[in-house]
């Protein structure tokens, strides 16, 4: 069972958390301006990297807060967790966080 460091509560067992998929995909500011392809890219297309992956996690059976984490998908090791709106201290996340609709995002808030 993974041990996950909630930025608000500290280390807690995996069973208290729920993974919310790839992080740093902001909801487009004006969805109506997107083509069908861009919108389906935002909805459905996600990275599946071998290595460092930035993910959203929710401490659902704890404080209830969402936060982001960098996890190595090979070793299952958590490299870092950080609050929503913050940037990771490691640089790998910029690659992992790239998305098909990045050009349309006003600002990656989450």
């Amino acid at each position: 069972m993974l041990l996950i460091a909630c930025p608000y509560c500290g280390n807690r067992p995996e069973t208290e958390f729920r993974c919310g998929g790839q992080a740093h995909i902001a909801r487009p500011a004006d969805p109506a301006a997107l083509s069908d392809e861009q919108w389906s890219g935002y909805l459905f297309v996600r990275d599946n990297p071998r290595g460092v992956h930035a993910e959203r996690w929710n401490h659902v059976h704890g404080c209830g807060r969402w936060f982001n984490a960098l996890r190595d998908t090979v070793s299952d090791r958590f490299l870092e967790t950080y609050k929503m709106g913050e940037k990771p201290s490691r640089t790998e996340s910029t690659e992992a966080g790239s998305t098909p609709v990045k050009s349309t995002q006003a600002e990656a808030r989450a």
């Binding site: 919310g20 902001a26 909801r27 959203r56 929710n58 807060r65 969402w66 929503m84 709106g85 808030r109 989450a110």
Partner: peptide, 8 residues
């Protein structure tokens, strides 16, 4: 989810 991550 929306309140915390999209519209804080």
């Amino acid at each position: 989810d929306y309140l915390q991550t999209e519209w804080p």
